[in-house]
């Protein structure tokens, strides 16, 4: 059932939706401007085949590529109350939510799943920048807490892919309170002696960087990802000078001692397998394209 709902159905749906939108068959790389065929991009994990620029990838597509055989079980996230502040700017918050849900086909800006990578059982969480800028509200807080609790329950490492503009303003102070809430989640993992690996993707900024995204045992970033607390525009306005080339990009942070590694998305799965297995004191991995775990070892 899970295999059907998580794997077969979305794949079938995506085939049909692709057929319905032939105008999206080609897209332009934001890095070098090369026109790329959609299959070429998706087969390469949304990394430009010509210049290596890392384009946006949805949590679902990332998980298909990450987990053995593309199989994972979504972990249910407790629903927070909707629109706690009855927030309204030029649009009502519930209307913004509905628009984001419609355009992404997702319920919220984070996906949590259990599965295996190179036969290593893990919990993974990924943030969706295309859903309201990936912003951290109560749902994201609940998702990270659910992910940590599941990891502790099953004794698995947690791998978290961050991508967000910051806290979700429409939830006001309650979004800010996700900083301590998610920090508690990280502490649960640490107390259980389980690895917490953060993969920072473009962009990870604001309150997200200043909480769970900077508290990993190992901090990895994708190439050229913008990672910061205050964005470059805000800083330029404050100090009134031009910032150096590459400022706040992954490589710059690596050079300043803020990251362990900068890793190409196409190599990420391999590195995560090696890392999690070593930290969990498991034997070396078996390499190769692994099929989905069989029934005798269900990916719980």
């Amino acid at each position: 059932m899970n295999w059907i709902s998580n794997y077969v159905r979305p794949r079938i749906n995506s085939i049909f939706s692709r057929r319905e939108t032939p105008e999206n068959l080609w897209s332009k790389c934001d890095g070098c401007g090369t026109m790329l065929f959609h299959r070429e991009i998706s087969d390469n994990l949304n990394v430009c085949t010509s210049c290596g620029h890392h384009m946006h990838i949805t949590p679902r597509d990332r998980f298909y590529a990450l987990f053995d055989g593309g199989v994972f079980n979504e972990i249910a996230v407790p629903e927070p109350i909707t629109d706690p502040l009855q927030f309204r700017d030029q649009k009502r918050y519930p209307d913004r939510m509905k628009a984001a849900q419609k355009s992404t086909g997702e319920k919220e800006s984070m996906l949590v799943a259990a599965g295996e990578i190179g036969r290593t059982p893990i919990i993974a969480a990924a943030q969706d920048f295309s859903f309201m800028g990936g912003s951290m509200g109560m749902y994201v807080g609940n998702a990270i807490i659910a992910a940590a609790e599941e990891a502790v329950k099953l004794g698995r490492p947690l791998v978290l892919f961050s991508a967000a503009g910051g806290a979700r303003m429409q939830e006001g102070i309650l979004s800010l309170m996700q900083m301590p809430r998610t920090t508690v989640a990280v502490q649960m993992l640490k107390e259980a002696g389980l690895p917490y690996i953060v993969v920072l993707t473009h962009p990870t900024t604001g309150g997200v960087t200043a909480s769970y995204a900077m508290l990993g045992d190992v901090q990895i970033a994708e190439p050229n990802a913008l990672i910061c607390f205050a964005g470059p525009r805000v800083i330029e306005q404050t100090i009134r000078e031009k910032l150096p080339e590459g400022f706040q990009r992954a490589e710059y942070l690596l050079e300043h001692g803020m990251l362990d590694r900068v890793t190409d998305r196409r190599e990420m799965r391999k590195e995560l397998i090696m890392l999690t297995r070593m930290l969990m004191q498991m034997p070396p991995p078996t390499w190769g394209d692994l099929p989905a775990p069989g029934n005798e070892t269900p990916a719980k």
Partner: peptide, 13 residues
């Protein structure tokens, strides 16, 4: 928190 160049380089977040 101060949004400055040095602050960011030294790991504000």
């Amino acid at each position: 928190a101060y949004p400055g160049k040095g602050a960011e380089e030294r790991g504000q977040s």
